[in-house]
Computed example of a mutant assay.
Amino acid sequence: MTIKQTTAASVLKILKQENFAVGAHLSAQYFADKLSLSRSPINRAFATLAERGILVKQPMRGYFVTKVIEDSFDEAVVEMGLVEKDVVESVYFKIAEDRLRGELGDVFSEKQIKKRYDLTMTQLQSVINKIAEEGWINKKPGYGWEFSPMLTTPESLMQTYRVRLALEPAALLEPEYSIAPEVIEECRQVELKLIAKGTSSSSTEQLHQRGVNFHQAIIEASGNPFFIDTLARINKVRRLLSYRSMQDRTRYLEHAQQHLAILDLLEQKRNAEASEQLRQHLASTISNIEKINQLLK
């Protein structure tokens, strides 16, 4: 299940982005304008941050900053409990799992989904739009929806990896390939964090998105829109079975080491070796998926 920011988290993000120093006085109206909210939710957010030791309230004077967040913002909001569960994301995973288990037929109506998962109309439209954007449902002419035949079998996931095996290593050999040092460093820090904290510290979606972000970053550096667009399309439609495969997380620390090796080679502009390392990485992933075939059924 993923999370979304509370108002308190949004206030904290502004404090960090705009470098509010210890002792700074906060204006509720300023934050209300920034977040397009009234002052009431802002004041409640201030009170929450005061409970977490970030702010202090002085009688007749208002709130002041008492602590500056130096670490990762995402880690800070989770550790302080400044997040809330996203109903849409939760139902998205339930629908995916029910489909893979065969509990949802090929065709369904919005009314059926709304009732089955106890959704409001707004939540229903959000989850339907999310699934449609990812390509695993299609609108039927006139009425209802149907599931796409793609990516509901282990073989379909394997097919996406075989396409990637053919394309991604070639992208690193493009004549104009150039990856920025800051992109390499950002990717490296993500992998080092995973190795240090282990896979249990990440949600399923975070773990999936980490891999997506890494591969997109190094392929985007090719500057070739055909490589970039193809990978983006594949990443959208493979999520359904990718999540199921993450029931076995043992291979992700090995993936992190492989990602670091590829980054080191790209940093040294040894693209041919990086391309071969990427080919081996993807081939290894295919082999690992074959071993957990039962999880995908």
Rank of each mutant, 00 (worst) to 15 (best):
G102Y: 07
E103T: 06
G105A: 14
G105E: 11
D106V: 06
S109R: 05
S109Q: 08
E110S: 15
E110H: 10
K111E: 15
Q112S: 13
I113M: 08
K114G: 01
R116W: 00
Y117I: 05
D118G: 02
D118P: 01
T120A: 13
M121T: 02
M121L: 07
Q123S: 10
Q125R: 15
Q125I: 06
N129W: 04
N129Q: 12
N129D: 13
K130N: 04
K130W: 00
I131R: 04
I131T: 03
I131S: 00
I131D: 02
A132H: 12
A132P: 01
A132V: 02
E134R: 12
I137K: 02
I137E: 06
I137W: 10
N138L: 08
N138I: 12
K139H: 14
P141E: 15
P141Q: 13
Y143D: 12
G144C: 09
W145G: 03
W145N: 10
W145A: 08
E146Q: 07
F147L: 01
P149K: 06
M150A: 08
M150V: 07
L151D: 04
L151K: 03
T152K: 14
P154C: 08
S156T: 07
Q159P: 06
T160N: 14
Y161K: 11
Y161H: 13
Y161R: 09
R162H: 11
R162L: 09
R164A: 05
R164Q: 10
L165Q: 10
E168M: 09
P169C: 07
P169A: 06
A170W: 01
L172H: 04
L172V: 07
L173R: 10
L173D: 00
L173F: 01
L173G: 01
P175F: 05
P175M: 00
P175H: 07
Y177F: 15
S178K: 02
I179S: 03
I179M: 15
I179Y: 06
A180L: 13
P181A: 09
E182H: 11
I184R: 01
E186S: 06
E186T: 10
C187L: 14
R188W: 08
R188T: 13
Q189N: 11
Q189W: 05
V190E: 05
E191I: 11
E191R: 14
E191V: 06
I195W: 12
A196N: 14
A196G: 13
K197Y: 13
K197F: 12
G198Y: 01
T199V: 14
S201P: 04
S201T: 12
S202F: 15
S202T: 06
S202C: 09
S202P: 00
S203C: 06
Q206A: 15
Q206H: 07
Q206S: 15
L207M: 11
Q209G: 02
R210N: 11
